[in-house]
Amino acid sequence: MRSRSRKKQIAAISAGILAGLVLLVLFWRAASGSEGIKESLQNAAAAVTKPLYQAAGGIQRGFKGIFHFKEVTAENEILKKENEKLQLEKAALALTRQEKQELEELEAVFQYEAIRGYTVKAANVSAMEYSGWQGAFLIDKGSRDGVKPGCIVISGNGLVGKVTEVSAETAKVVSILSDDTKVSFQTLEKKGKMGVLQSDGKGGLAGYLLEDGKTVKKGTKLITSGIGTYPEGIIIGEITRIKRKEGTQRLLLEAKPSVSFFKLRKVAVVL
């Protein structure tokens, strides 16, 4: 009797594992095959995660407010005055502190000289991938808004990455930390020095100066040079470490990206 029930249990486990494997294969095929199923799944999931993600952002900012009480009080006073002014002007638009901060962040995007000639679409982050150390996320703008794979994504703080997949209402964005794509840069100095950067696989960027024998200072800001995928003049980050390659004149450098990829709420897509 006992061995029979054990056999039954083993059969049930095997059946479950087999069913799981079949499902995995089906999902795999859906992921790599035609866009129909995948697009629909992505759109449906993003519709649920978007309000959750935005609400989580609000809570996070609220917690930060507790620890920066003085700053928040001062900011509150300014906001009160602004609010009174807005009320006097009978403004129809009332912004929350979070929305104001996000819009101010996004406003910086439109200051970039490099994207003057391009159409820029503002987008909200709908979901973030936290499991793969990747810095990949979903935005709420897709092919309906003109977003295509390869479109550049920036935030008020600088270069974010590019669009890799697009559905009608959403798009997947990969950060500059996630792949081995090289970004051509120039230093933000009078006579900018050119170089190449890419992800170091440790949450930062690593690269080198193109001209041997030149030197740069720690803390120097780096911007896109305009050569390759990204338009000129977008902030990438700042140099954190410099060393000369042994036996050569080549200057190797490490840089910290200016964007906190995992805290992004609003971004802009350059179409």
């Binding site: 069913a19 499902l23 992505q42 990747q134």
Partner: peptide, 25 residues
């Protein structure tokens, strides 16, 4: 039903990757 549970949660994980990740699998 451990087999069923493992299969079901792996399916949810696959779905999650399809929807939100760069690589599914």
């Amino acid at each position: 039903d451990t087999g069923l549970v493992v299969g079901m949660i792996a399916a949810f994980a696959a779905l999650q990757e399809i929807c939100f990740s760069l690589y599914a699998g």
